[in-house]
Design a protein around this nucleic acid. Structure first.
Length: 1149
RNA sequence: GCUCGAGUGGCGGAAUUGGUAGACGCGCUGGAUUCAAAAUCCAGUUCUUUCGGGAGUGUGGGUUCGAUUCCCACCUCGAGUACCA
């Protein structure tokens, strides 16, 4: 009987489905094992052969574990919310749910064909309301939680309220918004409900805030950083602007340290751990404040605020009085030239509000020094308007309209103030900065503070214009404008060029009191840290280079270290010198002491900086999870969990609304009736108990951050999963997926898992014990070359394309000058060609032949000549579909011509009637490169078992490797040979005779190797082990049941269909998946002799079969007596003979 | 630049407590079968050679009886990251 993969595979796939063979039980006496693939986004393009790679590996492992007696959970589902379906909906009006459903059908059909052992009864889809009910539920849990740093875990928000009620917020150690005002318990109780809610929102693990986002007006949505290229959107190239929007954020920063610590406990690839570590970006150090030296400035109107006073000022800004808040709420949103600042220093005065662009100061009346202030402000060119507390409280609208009037119709400034133009100018410059003239820097090396010899500010730093002296002004401005001209990209790419400018100003060293020059330089980034660094040239290479370049002093503060050539950035073993109280100390101690002294002086404080930012959780999109949130008086309210899910509403259009609201703004049925507890029509918003629902949806990573838990109990309507199931399955034992999710999905999922763990919902705080990144399968693109010199001389038909095959291409390319000259002179002799054109003699005929063919092609077409654009022949490589190319790289010309009709009449240039060969190159698999291979086609032609074996055979799982369909014939014929072992001609026939020693040896060495390979995820090598075994068994003509039955089990994880078929032919009733894995017995591999390699000076010369019973001396004796040895030595006396029994013999001499 | 990974035939790749380099497969060459092709089977296939042998795992050194494997320096390629103070 012939091996018929189509029939067999269909039969067993049907069997598995009907018998629910791979359905996992939630309780079993067997140990559990959870194998998971990252679930796919069902795109419209379907699967290509690269996609199943990881699934095949995990499937082999899952099947292996079943054979090994585990209760295996191996589910699959779909990450079915996402942008492509939405984009398609915008273009075609098709509901994303519909296209998603269709795509899933395609995926399922393709997946089924490969014969995976998925437990489909547990399928989840993130876009199903029954599923996203739990996404919404987790969101509510996050909203109702805060992070207590003292217990180092998330706690219910009620515990926070209790503390507020009892002690206020001063003693709370929480992860929360910055700049929260402090209050006592009495104050808390006095706050309105709304005020309390506002405060709590600053502590919740998911919170609303005004976040600066990348807004693309044309696309009507927010873009992630990686969706922007060169300042425009990746798709469409539309401009992108920074815009503040009120959005939900996730307080992932609360978990920064635990996310780092957890990495130690999980078996994930090191590069992946590295990139998460990098992303979290922990740096330990200190904030240090440097005062700008006022003596170096001439202006009398300097702000002389100390660090403490500034801290106080910060507090003042945060703690506004009732009237102040009320007015601030009205004017804070003014933009552009009308922008107001609160509690701002003008000269040495602190004003309530100021609009700098309009020279307008707004103050509350009744200040003691009102007269003095008025004089100074007038002198500086400001208009001042004053209101009383009462005026503001009684009618804030009237106050605002007066302010608006003042903005629109500014009073003419007094002439006297215009006289002193420079004074005003310098004063204006001063006002541009929000901070006073104190420069904060973050440093990881406060221990090197005595090595500071200058400060560097980013050119964009707000203090730059303020502190620059008149003499340096021109230089600084020139530098800033030069920097501004360079794009961000140029600036980052060009790290080597050192550039900068001196501001002329000096700062004061917090300990020595010495003057430190302040420079600007573009090696300091405005958007990291404070945009300023304390430069320690002896300890930091960039500072060192800068100092060398500008001839700034480089004080050495390291004991016995030479810094004449480069900076010394080592920490370990370095002893600090020339550093006052730090001298003689090692790094660690110096660091601690420096921070201690800084804090004592009020000049700084210890700080741990994380690069990890809170994650924005709102998307202005349709096809995502709706929030279970409605707004009452502008405050977000959670919908009670018993009313979940809140189902995504229908909309007419999937685009943002005309007034810029997200797509859900188009929904007509999108309001929350708080009495009826359901979503109702927007018409009812007039009712007092009906409120607007949130219009944003959740991001793509929401649904994928916990799905692995849901698989444990996917149909549970009351819980995310039952306690028992969670307890039983715990977490993923083996997780396989791509490395591109390193800092997205895999970080967020760890975050949610830790949160759910804190809340006692899940039993473990890391969701995946082991993770493997499968490598990408690359396509092998095929190219034909279009010769760009055009044929001319016959009417209008000038552009008959000439296609060059691979072998001609090289000749044409190498000999362009020769061809050009041949064409024009036509009288070159062979010897001229050889000597003048560097043509190898052996190549001569080939070259001339090629030229002749080229010429013939032109003449045959009736053309007189070829137009040479240049001596350099230009050629153009175009992709051809890989399906037109056979294993020997030959192109099917007819198929190609009918595919690309513009080449219908083209000439195809080959040599000596060769077939037309394409050139090949390895590239990413993609539709546009015509190198996509569809697994369906492979299953059709070779079968799923061949596909599975071949994908594994390509190379190591983690490695990127090119796909070449031609290679599949190897595994395909292996399966045929395997099949033949069980057959005698046309009939199935196995013998019950005792197996021979050799047969047992083959079986058991295969068991050993395959078991080791699977445990090490080295699937490629076990495929070759199978091939070797089958070759050996074929040679032995083995048809013994005792060998072939266990062998079928060995093969079954890899090629399950054929294994099932053979298993049932062997007379077994149950699926082979229920069979135990064969047990390796070492006794079958014991040898009595060894074929020793005999080496001379380490080079193997011949082999010698010797008994393993021989002693070292006996071996030596035998070897030395051997005639080959004597021949090798040719009379020399060996210096030494090395004998490792059972391994090698090496003769030195 | 930094971090990590990798360099082995025409190609994918195998082999590392240091012990016969190139397993297995593709491709190629020759042969058998066939009217022919496909399929199948057999033999060969790192390079070089005066057929004895010699050289050989990116390059150059080192350790060792012995190095693809360990150490040092360098080169190339790939991935990630982007001046993180």
């Amino acid at each position: 009987m012939q091996y018929n993969h189509t029939e067999i595979e269909k039969k067993w796939q049907k069997y598995w489905e009907e018998n629910q063979t791979f359905k996992a039980s939630n309780s079993s006496k067997k140990p559990k094992y959870y194998v998971l693939d990252m679930f796919p986004y069902p795109s419209g393009a379907g699967l290509h052969v690269g996609h199943p790679l990881g699934y095949i590996a995990s499937d082999i492992y899952a099947r292996y574990k079943r054979h090994k007696g585990f209760n295996v959970l191996h589910p699959q589902g779909y990450d079915s919310f996402g942008l492509p379906a939405e984009q398609y909906a915008i273009q075609t009006g098709q509901h994303p749910a519909k296209t998603t459903e269709e795509n899933i059908k395609t995926y399922r059909r393709q997946l089924d064909r490969v014969g995976f052992s998925f437990d489909w009864s547990r399928e989840v889809r993130t876009s199903n309301p029954e599923y996203y009910k739990w996404t919404q539920w987790i969101f509510i849990q996050l909203f109702n939680s805060w992070y207590n740093k003292d217990s180092d875990k998330a706690e219910d928000i009620s515990t926070l309220e209790k503390i507020f009620k009892k002690d206020g917020n001063t003693a709370v150690n929480a992860v929360c918004d910055e700049e929260i005002k402090s209050f006592s318990s009495d104050e808390w109780k006095a706050f309105s409900k709304a005020a309390q809610e506002e405060i709590l929102l600053q502590y919740r693990l998911t919170y609303l805030s005004d976040t600066e986002v990348n807004w693309c007006p044309k696309l009507g949505t927010v873009l992630a950083n990686d969706e922007i290229i060169n300042g425009v959107s990746e798709r469409g190239g539309h401009p992108v602007v920074r815009k503040k929007m009120r959005q939900w954020s996730m307080r992932i920063s609360a978990y920064a340290q635990r996310l780092l610590d957890g990495l130690e406990t999980i078996d994930w690839p090191q590069p992946l751990k590295d990139s998460q570590t990098n992303w979290i970006g922990k740096s330990v150090g200190a904030m240090v404040s440097f005062q700008v030296d006022v003596k170096s400035k001439d202006s009398a109107s300097e702000v002389k605020l100390t660090y403490k006073e500034l801290e106080a000022l910060k507090e003042l800004r945060a703690n506004l009085s009732k009237a102040e808040i009320s007015l601030w709420n009205e004017i804070k949103n003014k933009k552009g030239a009308s922008k107001f600042r609160k509690k701002y220093t003008i000269g040495s005065f602190l004003v309530d509000y100021v609009c700098l662009a309009k020279n307008l100061i707004v103050e509350f009346s009744g200040k003691e020094d009102e007269a003095e202030r008025a004089v100074f402000f007038n002198k500086e060119g400001f208009n001042v308007i004053r209101f009383s507390n009462e005026e503001v409280l009684q009618n804030v609208v009237k106050v605002v309209s007066e302010i608006n009037f003042a903005i629109q119709f500014p009073k003419v400034q007094k002439t006297e103030s215009k006289k002193n133009v420079t004074s005003i100018a310098s004063s204006r410059a001063e006002l541009r900065g929000e901070k006073s003239d104190k420069i904060d820097v973050f440093t990881t090396r406060p221990d090197t503070i005595f090595g500071v010899s200058f400060l560097t500010l980013a050119p964009e730093h707000e203090l730059v214009s303020k502190i620059t002296t008149d003499t340096q002004k021109a230089a600084v401005e020139a530098y800033i404008s030069a920097t501004a001209k360079r794009s961000e990209r140029d600036r980052m790419a060009d790290v080597k060029t050192i550039s900068g400018a001196f501001t002329g100003a000096y700062a004061v060293h917090p300990f020595t009191g010495k003057q430190i020059p302040i420079w600007i330089g573009d090696y300091v980034l405005a958007n990291y840290g404070t945009g300023a660094v304390m430069a320690v040239p002896c300890g930091d290479q960039r500072d060192y280079d800068f100092a060398k370049h500008f001839d700034i002093s480089i004080p050495n503060i390291f004991e016995g270290v030479d810094i004449s050539e480069a900076a010394h950035s080592d920490k370990d073993g370095t002893v600090i010198a020339n550093s006052d109280f730090l001298s003689g100390l090692k790094y660690k101690k110096a660091l601690k002491l420096a921070i201690f002294e800084l804090e004592k002086k009020g000049a700084g404080y210890g700080k741990v900086n994380y690069r990890l930012r809170d994650a924005v959780f709102s998307r202005q999109r349709y096809w995502g999870e709706p929030f279970p949130v409605y707004y009452k008086d502008g405050m977000p309210q959670m919908i009670d969990e018993k009313h979940l899910p809140i189902v995504l509403p229908e909309v007419e259009k999937y685009l943002p609304t005309e007034d810029g609201k997200p797509p859900l703004g188009n929904a007509t049925e999108w309001a929350w009736d708080s009495r009826a507890k359901k979503v109702v029509s927007n018409d009812k918003l007039k009712n007092k108990t009906v409120y607007p629902l949130e219009l944003n949806t959740m991001p793509g990573w929401a649904g994928s951050s916990y799905y692995f838990n849901r698989y444990m109990d996917p149909h549970n309507e009351n819980e995310i999963a039952s306690k028992e199931n969670l307890q039983y399955w715990q977490n993923i034992d083996l997780y396989i997926g791509g490395s591109e999710h390193a800092t997205g999905h895999l970080l967020y999922a760890r975050f949610w898992q830790k949160f759910l763990f804190d809340k006692g919902i899940v039993p473990v705080d890391e969701f995946a014990k082991k993770l493997i990144n499968q490598g990408m399968i690359l396509g092998t693109s095929a190219f034909v070359t279009v010769f760009n010199g055009s044929f001319i001389g016959k009417g209008n038909a000038n552009n008959i394309p000439l296609l060059l095959c691979n072998s001609v291409l090289d000749i044409v390319r190498k000999n362009t000058t020769l061809f050009y000259d041949l064409w024009n002179k036509d009288t070159l002799t062979d010897s001229e060609i050889i000597s003048n054109y560097k043509v190898e003699k052996a190549e001569l005929d080939k070259v001339k032949n090629t030229y002749g063919t080229l010429l013939k092609a032109a003449k045959e077409r009736g053309f007189e000549s070829i137009e040479w654009t240049d001596k350099t022949v230009e050629v153009r490589l175009i992709h051809t579909d890989v399906s037109f190319v056979n294993a020997s790289d030959e192109l099917d010309l007819e198929a190609f011509k009918s595919w690309r009709t513009e080449f219908k009449d083209a000439e195809f240039l080959t040599l000596e009637d060769d077939s037309f060969k394409v050139s090949r190159e390895v590239e990413k698999m993609s539709k546009s490169k015509y190198n996509v291979v569809n697994p369906d086609a492979i299953c059709e032609e070779y079968g799923a078992d061949s596909l599975r074996l071949f994908e594994m055979f390509l190379g190591p799982l983690e490695q990127a490797k090119p796909w070449k369909t031609s290679g599949i014939s190897g595994v395909s014929s292996f399966l045929k040979k395997l099949w033949k072992l069980y057959f005698n001609g046309e009939t199935f026939e196995v013998s019950d005779a005792e197996p021979t020693k050799d047969e047992l040896k083959t079986l058991h060495k295969t068991i050993k190797k395959v078991e080791e390979d699977i445990e090490n995820f080295s699937f490629n090598t076990s495929v070759s082990t199978f091939m070797i075994a089958v070759n050996e068994l074929t040679a032995l003509k083995c048809n013994k049941r005792a060998i072939l039955e266990p062998f079928a089990i060995l093969v079954s994880p890899y090629a399950p269909h054929i294994a099932e078929e053979l298993w049932s032919l062997l007379g077994n009733k149950d699926s082979i998946s229920t069979a135990d894995f064969p047990v390796f017995e070492a006794s079958h591999l014991v040898e009595s002799t060894k074929t020793y390699p005999v080496s001379f000076n380490g080079k193997m010369r011949f082999t010698l079969e010797l008994s393993l019973d021989l002693s070292k001396d006996e071996i030596e004796e035998t070897v030395m007596a051997n005639e080959k040895t004597i021949a090798q030595l040719s009379g020399r006396e060996p210096k030494k003979v090395i004998i490792v029994p059972g391994k090698i013999i090496n003769i030195v001499g």
